[in-house]
Design a protein around this nucleic acid. Structure first.
Lengths: 200, 200, 200, 200
DNA sequence: GATGAATGAGGGTTCATTCAT
DNA sequence: CATGAATGAACCCTCATTCAT
C-alpha cells in the first residue's frame, strides 16, 4: 500500500467527474451547468472537482478530448479490420453511431455545445479541426481500401468523397437531433450511407 | 410630438438591437453576452433594450424567428421561380448560401448556439423543427418540379432525397465552419450538390 | 376662457392622480408601486404625474397630507356638533370609521406604510405627530364637553383618557386589519368605545 | 476540518445575519435595505447571506418568525407563573415591553414594516394572525386565572377583554412609536393596563 | 400641457474559485 | 486527500426621472 496517491484511483475519480460533467452539461449547457451540480452528480464535493481539473474550462476541454479520442479510436479500429468488406464496415459504423445516439443523446447535445464554442474558443476549434481531419482521413483510408478491393470505382476522388461522407453523416445527425420523431436515425443513417456509396 | 408611438421608428430600433445582438452573440455566445454589451453595440442604453424585448430570452427568440423567416423566405422564392431549371436554382442557392456565410459567419455561429439550445429549450426546438420541416418541404417541391421537367429521374424518392440534401448541405456547412481553411465552402457546397443530384 | 391653466382642472387632475396612487400603493406598497402603474391607473402618462408631483416622495407626502386633513376635518366637525350628546358623537365616529374601513381597507393598508415610513422619514414622522396630537386634542375637547354635560365623571383626567381612547381605537383597527375574520370591526369598535366610556 | 458542517457555527452565523438584518431593516425599511448592507452589517460578504437565506424574502420571513416566537415565549412564560398575582404579571409584562422598546425601537420599526407587508403578503398575514391569536389566547388565559383568583370580576367576558387588552397595548405602542416625546411609554403602558383592569 | 422613449443607477441573485480545516 | 464555507465579480432586470417633440 503505497503512501503516494494511487494512480488508478486518481484516474477513476477523474473519469467519474467527467461522466458526471457529461450528464450535467448535456442537460444544462456549459454556461448553465454549475460546478457544484457536476460535483454532486459525481458524488464528490465542489473542492474535489478542482483537485482534478484546474477550472471549468479545463473540465470542458478534457471532456472534449475524451470525446474525440474515443470517437477516433473506434474509427481507427474500423480501418484496421481489413478482412471485412468496406461497405460492411461503414454500415456497421453507421449503425453503431445511430444506435448509440438513439440510446443516449447527451453526447450529441454536448457536441453542439462544442461546435458553438469552437466559434470563439481557439483551443476548441483546433481540437475539432484535428478531429474532423482525422475523421476524414480515416474514411479516406477506408474508401481507398474499397478501391483496392474493387468495392469503390477506381477513378473516385476519395478525398472529396470522404469529406462529403462526413458531411452527410453529420447532417443527418443534426436533423435527427433537432427532430427525432421526424427522422428515424437508425434507418436514415445507413440509408444515406448506402445511397452515397452507390453514387460513387 | 410622440403623442402616439411611431411604428417605423419602433421597428427600426428593434432591428437595430437585433443586429447588434447578432454581432455580440456570435462573438460571445448567448450565455456570455451581457445585455449591456448588446446595448452598447446597438448604441443605446441597457434600459432601452428592455423597451423592445422583454428579456434576454425574448431577444434570443426574436433573433431565431428572424433567422428562420429570412431563410425560408429565400427558399420559397426559389420554389416560385419555375421558369428556371431546378439544378440552376439549387446551384444558385448553394452559391448564395456559401457566399453569404463566407462573408459573414456570425449567423452560422449563432446557428450552432441555437442547435445547442434546442436540446434544452422546447420553444427553440419547436422552431427549429418547423424550420427544418419547411426547409425539407421546399426542397421536396423543387425536386418534384425536377421530376416534372425531366431533370430528376422519375422513380426518385423525393421526400428522402430532400432530407438527405438538407443533411448534406448542413453537414458541409458544419465542416466549413469548423475549419474554413480545410474546406472551401464556395466550391464544396455546389460540388456536393452536383454529386448528389447526379446520384439521383 | 383664460389662457392660463384652469385651476379647477389642475386640482381635478391632481386628485385623480392621488386617488390612483392610493389604489396602487395599497396594493403594492410604496416601494413596489411603480410610478407608471399609478399613471396608468389614473389614466394619464408617466410624464403627466411629474407635472403635478415633483417626485414619488412628493406624491407620497401629498397623499399623507390628504389623509390626515380629511381625517381631522371629520373629527373637528364632530367637535362642533355640540347639540349632540358626546357619547352619540363618539359612537357615530366609531361606526363611521369602521364602516368605511370595512368597505375599503386601502386607506388602512397605506396607513401602515406611513407608520413604517415614519420611523425613518422625519417629515412623515412630524406629520403623524401633528395628526395624532390634533386627534388627541379633538377627543380631549369632546371629553371636556362630556364633563360639562355631565356625561363624563367630573374628576376624569381627560388628557390621559383621550390618548388612551386613540390608542384603543387604533389598536382595535390593527387587530382587524391583521385578521378581519377574527375581529368584527363594526361591532368591536363601538363596543370598545362603550366599555371605555363606562370605565371613566 | 469541515468534513461535516458544524451546526452551532451555522446557527451562530444565521443569528448574526438576522441581527444585522434587524438593524438594517429598521433603519431603511425592507424595500430600501440592500442585501449587501445587511451583509456588511453582519461582517460577511453578500454571497454569504445567501448561504443562510435563500432570498431576501426568506430572510424577512425568518426575522418575522424569530420575532413572533420570542414574543410568544415570553407570554407563555407569564401564563405559567401561576404563583404570581395576575395583575402583577401583566404589569411586569407592560413594564418589560415598554422598557425594551424604549431601549431599542428597531423591533418596533420592523413590526410596522410587517403590518404593512401583511396587507399584500399572505404568508406574513397568516403569521401575524397566528401570533395575535396566540397573544389573545395567552391574555385570555391570564384573565381566567384572574377570575379564579378573584382578581377579575366573575362575569367578565374574558375573550373580549383579552382582545381589547391587546388592542390597547398595541395602540399605546403605536402612539409612542410615532411620538416618543409626547407619550411616556414606560408610564403610559402600565397606566393603561391599570385603568383597563379596573374597568373590568 | 401631455407624452413616452430613453437613461443608468441600483439591487437581487448566481456561481467560479479559493482555502482553512 | 477532501470538504464546504466564504468571497465578490458579474449579470439580469426594474424603475425613477428627464426631455425632445
Amino acid at each position: 500500500m503505497p503512501r503516494t496517491a494511487d494512480p488508478d484511483l486518481q484516474k477513476e475519480r477523474r473519469e467519474q467527474i467527467l461522466a458526471a460533467a457529461q450528464v450535467v452539461f448535456a442537460e444544462h449547457g456549459f454556461a448553465d451547468a454549475p460546478m457544484v451540480t457536476i460535483a454532486k452528480q459525481a458524488g464528490v464535493s465542489k473542492g474535489t472537482v478542482y483537485l482534478y481539473f484546474a477550472s471549468k474550462d479545463d473540465l470542458i476541454a478534457a471532456l472534449l478530448d475524451d470525446f474525440l479520442a474515443e470517437s477516433l479510436t473506434y474509427l481507427h479500429m474500423l480501418v484496421e479490420q481489413k478482412e471485412v468488406r468496406v461497405r460492411d464496415r461503414l454500415t456497421a459504423y453507421a449503425e453503431a453511431v445511430s444506435t448509440q445516439m438513439a440510446a443516449d443523446s447527451s453526447m450529441l447535445s454536448i457536441a453542439y455545445e462544442f461546435y458553438a464554442l469552437a466559434a470563439r474558443n481557439p483551443a476548441v476549434r483546433m481540437a475539432l479541426q484535428t478531429y474532423f481531419s482525422a475523421y476524414g482521413q480515416a474514411l479516406e483510408t477506408l474508401l481507398l481500401q474499397g478501391v483496392d478491393s474493387g468495392e469503390v470505382a477506381a477513378g473516385t476522388d476519395v478525398a472529396a468523397a470522404a469529406v462529403m461522407l462526413v458531411a452527410l453523416l453529420e447532417g443527418v445527425t443534426l436533423l435527427w437531433f433537432t427532430d427525432p420523431d421526424a427522422v428515424d436515425i437508425t434507418a436514415m443513417l445507413p440509408a444515406a450511407l448506402r445511397q452515397f456509396l452507390n453514387s460513387l
